[in-house]
Amino acid sequence: MTKEELTTTFEEIKGSLKSYILRVTASIQDAEDIVQDTYVKALEKIDTFRGDSSLKTWIFAISFNLAKDNLRVKKRWTENVTDICKEAAMSNRPFFQKAMEIRTTSPQGQFEIKEHIAFCFTCVSKSLPLEQHVCLLLKEVYEFKVKEIARITEISEAMVKYYLHTGRSKMVDVFQGRCALIHKEGVCHQCTELNGIFNPQQKAEEELVKIEMARKAESADKEHLFDLRMNIVKGIDPFESDAAELQLHHLEHNREVMEKYLEKNKD
């Protein structure tokens, strides 16, 4: 393995690696720093690569190890993160002013409900224990196999399967109970509310017809609806989508709110 081959592969997967770290940390700065540190570390350790996994898997393993210690010392978010952050946003005039500026001036300032579905998953999935969160992302969004996830996380394949089962079951239940978009009794209406703020001339129903998940909400079971949600998440790069700047602004707000909330409510 040469440095040139490593660099070529790294550039090919850099986008997915960066989006993965963003979804794990919910921090733009952490994502950028960890991706850069991963490349430096990979160059330093290039002689240790033996080819017993793909180079992509090896690079993701380095990235996970760099992020792991930082993540373990931070408290996990709560399932009602959207409620907490919505309440904080309602009294945060600068947040909305900046959001509206992005919406009207940025080429990445569009608001679409499918983009917010992916954003919502990023926030809510941070309520899972770290191992469940990481395994679920690697399998459901980045399509790694169980054997590859075991290498990345240094967890046995049996435990990876366990974390995938428990993590998926938890997220299926959370979305079934909270998301008003797919469950009439759900308490979270953020998708449709934000559509009303950023697309005042467009009815939420018009936006929803684009989303297979919404069309099947009445007939599909909650497992299938979760799979449809994951298909949406897989199709969106949070740094490159048409809504990237708007949603990243929103994510930074939520991260700051949750850090303050968890500090205030720590044991």
Rank of each mutant, 00 (worst) to 15 (best):
L128N: 06
D173C: 04
C179M: 13
S53R: 12
T166P: 02
K56Q: 11
L22Q: 00
Q201M: 13
R93D: 14
R255Y: 07
K210L: 10
R93I: 15
F49H: 08
H183A: 10
Q247G: 02
S169P: 03
E79T: 02
K266Y: 10
I155Q: 13
F111M: 08
R168M: 12
S16F: 09
F95C: 10
S54C: 08
A67V: 12
L55V: 05
L181I: 13
M213P: 01
A118P: 05
E223W: 05
V141M: 05
P200D: 08
K126T: 09
L164W: 14
S219G: 04
E205S: 13
R23W: 00
E11D: 11
F10P: 01
A220D: 06
S106F: 08
T78L: 15
R151G: 08
G235I: 07
F49G: 07
K234F: 03
K184M: 11
A99C: 09
T166S: 13
G196H: 00
I28S: 12
A243Q: 01
C179F: 10
L43F: 10
N265R: 03
F119K: 04
K161S: 15
E193V: 03
A214R: 00
V24S: 07
K216I: 08
D47M: 06
A42H: 11
F226G: 02
N199Y: 09
I62C: 12
K126P: 03
A214G: 04
I232S: 04
H249S: 04
K41V: 11
N265S: 06
A89E: 09
R255H: 07
I34R: 02
V257S: 04
M1Q: 01
D242S: 10
I34C: 08
L17K: 12
H250N: 05
S91M: 11
Q202F: 04
E205Y: 11
S106G: 01
V146D: 14
C188T: 00
E256R: 13
E143Y: 05
K86L: 07
K75I: 00
E205V: 14
G51N: 04
L262Q: 08
S169F: 01
P238H: 01
S106C: 05
K222Y: 14
H250Q: 07
Y20T: 11
